[in-house]
Amino acid sequence: MALKATIYKADLNIANMDSHQYGDYQFTMALHPSETIERLMVRVLAYAKYADEALEFTKDLFETDEPALWEKDLTGQLVKWIEVGCPDEDKVKKAAARCKQVAVITYGSSVNEWYKRSSKLKTLKNVEVWQLSEATTNAIQALCERTMQLQLNVMDGEWTLIGDQAQATIEWTQLQ
């Protein structure tokens, strides 16, 4: 019998004083049986970084040709493509040809080696690559619950994600 996905719900309130973005977002995510809580919470941070009502979680681990998140315009054309982890560079290159904006949110111990090997990425002008620190990914896992109430505060470049039981300082490093 195949394992089923576990459903997580989140209410995310964003108060970004740096970019004057304020909003409340509600979303439902499926945790794939092979996915970790760390990756699930990195997807939440990716959503928070590019928050928009049109941004959607996809079936990325169920459908390998989809990213973790995407945004489409009113005609159904892809506008944003957001990958999580260390994706295949050919997949990112293909996405860069189809979308105005592509982002890769990386984490884990293999990021530096992956980025060093991904020479094609460095030539793509519409691709951003961000790295989350290990301290960040460890801290955000403590915020995970099946139903989450999260508050993200951004001020003077400092990101703080607050949950019911804990909070985490988010450390971003832009690689590209």
Rank of each mutant, 00 (worst) to 15 (best):
T173E: 12
V154H: 04
D24V: 03
E113M: 11
D73L: 03
M155F: 12
T136I: 01
N13F: 09
A46I: 06
S133H: 04
L132W: 05
N153F: 11
L45M: 07
I37R: 08
Y25M: 05
K49H: 12
W70Y: 02
T58S: 11
K93D: 06
Q26E: 08
A97G: 12
E53C: 01
P87W: 11
A15H: 11
A139C: 03
A46R: 04
M148R: 03
E158N: 15
K59Q: 15
R43T: 01
H20I: 05
N153C: 08
K80T: 02
M1C: 09
L61E: 11
K9S: 11
E63I: 14
T58P: 00
I37H: 12
T169C: 07
A166P: 07
K93L: 07
M1W: 09
A95V: 04
T6K: 13
S19W: 07
F57H: 08
N112V: 12
V129W: 03
D90I: 02
S110P: 09
E113N: 13
W81C: 09
T173N: 11
E71P: 02
E134P: 03
Y50A: 11
A166K: 12
K125L: 06
L132Q: 04
D52C: 08
A97I: 05
F62P: 00
G163R: 04
Y115Q: 06
G157N: 03
A97V: 04
K80F: 05
K72L: 10
N138P: 00
A135C: 01
Q26P: 00
A30S: 11
L78P: 05
A51M: 04
A48H: 09
R146I: 09
A54Y: 04
S119Q: 13
R43V: 01
D18Q: 09
L132D: 10
Q21K: 15
T169F: 07
L150S: 06
H20P: 00
M155E: 13
M29T: 02
A135Q: 15
T169V: 15
Q167R: 15
I105A: 08
F62S: 08
C144Q: 07
K9E: 10
Y115G: 02
E71L: 15
A135D: 15
A48Q: 08
R98C: 01
H20V: 03
A51K: 10
G108V: 10
K72I: 07
Q174N: 08
D164R: 13
I162L: 09
L61F: 07
D11R: 13
C99H: 08
A96D: 08
Y107C: 09
C99Q: 10
E171A: 13
H20L: 15
V104S: 05
L31F: 01
L55T: 02
T75I: 07
R43M: 01
Q101H: 15
Q149I: 02
A103K: 05
D164Y: 06
N138L: 10
P67S: 11
F57Y: 14
P33E: 02
I82E: 02
Q21A: 10
G163N: 09
T28S: 12
H32L: 06
T160M: 14
Y115L: 13
Y25W: 08
R43P: 00
D18C: 06
Y22E: 12
G108W: 05
L78R: 11
D60T: 02
E63K: 11
A142E: 15
V42W: 03
T64N: 13
